[in-house]
Design a binder for these strands. Structure first.
Lengths: 202, 202
DNA sequence: CGTTTTACAAGTCGGTCGTATTGCCATACC
DNA sequence: GGTATGGCAATACGACCGACTTGTAAAACG
């Protein structure tokens, strides 16, 4: 055998090349040849690491959602490191911030996510993947709202599950507007704050 | 010349065939041949009515947004016909309902809209089109909120412009979730009601 | 040291895409 | 009634696409 190569590492490299293309030209506009060129490798080499286009797509999706999750997790860890037990409101704000296209990295990630979202709309198998992530996030948000109510930081008339869905939908919608440049990412964040301010007692 | 044909009528017919494909397979999956087949005509005939694919796409987009607008307008007219001067809250609720995928027609329209939205993300010219619609809707929503504040039906601390953006973003986000079948359209409508209930005084 | 296995390159294949070309038929007009 | 013209069909073209096959070099292993 020739030099031993870390397969996973190479696959990640290729996935990142795919993101760069998908975020600028869309997922449909990312051919195997384009991705290979973007990654600086040959088509043959790319095919050596993925059995087909579908496998590459799925791998890249799982990898990017893992990264996005980690990014938010880091954000939360940094938060709970500073003071003891951050308030639910702060946690929710920070999560929402992590879901908005506030920097180039998350912007790229969101564009890629939308490309997959579109495919999920007409692809049964992809839809399953896309549906999996949301309940987990919703449960986490709901927990935060529950905690807030328990602490008396939010009104008791507040339904944690419903508010979780509302906040997620709101963030998603603001993300769309921001990506379309109808509003700026900063305005989007301001609107999230506005929404949260209404939910939590002063 | 042979039999005279209503060009606009034919173009609309073709546009509707395009929607049916775009709503099930996405815009990228709609080739001229597919659209022609769906419309029950030959590729040559389709080409006779559109100078190229781009022109067909733009026409279909303008046509569908016109229809969606008319649908909501009808809804509002039916509303103001029943009683005198419907409350802003009712108007906003009805608009939001018109923007959600509550029936098959609006569902198809939204899927097509998303297909265009995606293209707009990476296509400068399409983005202009997409950006145009929102300010008008936002201004209308803001007017409703202003009216509500003036009538004393909503708290005076409410910023009409911000609330308009929030409601639009929320509706968009809920639409995405509903199309992905993470929530049902009825749940989406319920969440809009929940949001509106918080904004308006009881 | 020879064999096997891995990493990669290059080319080919059938298919589909948007577009352009060509031609025929039917009709309206001079 | 010839002819110009609009409606439409058929076909071809060049550029891609994803998948597959083949060839080659190099490193690990017996």
């Amino acid at each position: 055998m020739p030099k031993r190569v870390d397969h996973e590492e190479r696959r990640r490299l290729i996935a990142e090349a795919l993101w760069r293309i998908a975020s600028s030209r869309g997922l449909e506009g990312a051919s195997l040849r384009d991705v290979a060129a973007e990654a600086g490798i040959s088509l043959g080499q790319l095919q050596h690491y993925f059995s087909g286009k579908d496998e590459m797509l799925v791998f890249a999706l799982e990898h990017i959602s893992t990264l996005a999750e980690a990014r938010i997790r880091d954000r939360l860890l940094a938060l709970s490191g500073a003071s003891t037990a951050p308030s639910p409101r702060t946690v929710l704000r920070e999560c929402a911030a992590g879901m908005l296209p506030l920097d180039d990295e998350s912007r790229t990630g969101l564009l890629v996510g939308i490309a997959y979202f579109v495919r999920a709309l007409s692809d049964e198998r992809m839809r399953r993947h896309a549906q999996e992530g949301q309940p987990k996030l919703r449960a986490f948000f709901a927990d935060q709202f529950r905690e807030a109510v328990a602490r008396g930081e939010a009104g008791s008339g507040l339904d944690p599950e419903l508010e979780a869905m509302l906040l997620i939908a709101l963030t998603d919608g603001l993300t769309s507007s921001a990506l379309l440049e109808v509003i700026t990412p900063e305005e989007a964040m301001g609107l999230v704050d506005r929404h949260l301010e209404r939910l939590f007692v002063r």
